[in-house]
């Protein structure tokens, strides 16, 4: 069977599926890492390392999100499954997830670059500061980053529950087609 990279009207391609799950794992991981790292004791061996990991991964995630958005809008979209209101809600939720994801990433970037310092990404390259030196920038961006990340994780939870509902209650292909790029008959 030929590998299906691109989306079709019925199915997600390999690229969309891989990006979706990479981003899902990264967002969940970064959320947990973020919650944990801010409580670390000054003498904890992870006190420096955890934020470095969080920032570096955040920058890479930003790249993945940009890639996913580009791919998403330059590919066919599999036909939505479910009722009209479900489709509307899904479209809205997906758009909100994308906006929240970008806003959370940007607000995080604005904390670390608030005084013009770049973000070092795993020692490989640096992302320079752009918007810096605003009054209380780090504090304000920090509060926004925290708030947005909670909303993002909450909405991602709803998104996951909706997928499970389609799978176990409606017995349709919503979840299956995000797991494998085989052509699935749509119920």
């Amino acid at each position: 069977m030929r590998t299906m990279w691109r989306n079709t009207n019925d199915s997600y391609g390999r690229v969309s599926i891989t990006l979706h799950w990479l981003i899902a794992v990264a967002v969940t991981g970064l959320f947990a890492l973020g919650l944990w790292m801010v409580e670390l004791d000054y003498y904890d061996p992870w006190y420096q390392r955890a934020p470095e990991l969080h920032k570096s991964s955040g920058v890479l995630l930003f790249g993945l999100v940009l890639l996913r958005l580009t791919w998403h809008y330059s590919n066919p979209r599999p036909r939505p499954v479910g009722s009209t209101w479900e489709n509307r809600a899904a479209t809205l939720a997906h758009a909100a997830l994308e906006v929240l994801l970008l806003a959370t990433l940007v607000s995080g970037y604005l904390i670390s670059t608030a005084d013009g310092r770049p973000i070092d990404v795993f020692g490989l390259f640096q992302v320079p500061a752009t918007l810096a030196g605003l009054q209380n920038q780090a504090d304000l961006a920090g509060k926004i980053h925290e708030l947005l990340s909670f909303i993002l994780i909450g909405l991602a939870g709803v998104h996951a529950l909706a997928a499970l509902k389609h799978h176990f209650i409606n017995h349709d292909a919503t979840l299956r087609r995000m797991l494998a790029s085989r052509q699935e008959p749509v119920d």
Binding site: I111, S112, R117, N136, Q137, A138, D139
Partner: peptide
């Protein structure tokens, strides 16, 4: 107290 400045925005955020 919010005007604390140790020449590192992230540290100042922590100090505040």
């Amino acid at each position: 107290t919010g005007s604390i400045d140790s020449n590192h925005a992230e540290r100042d955020k922590h100090l505040r």
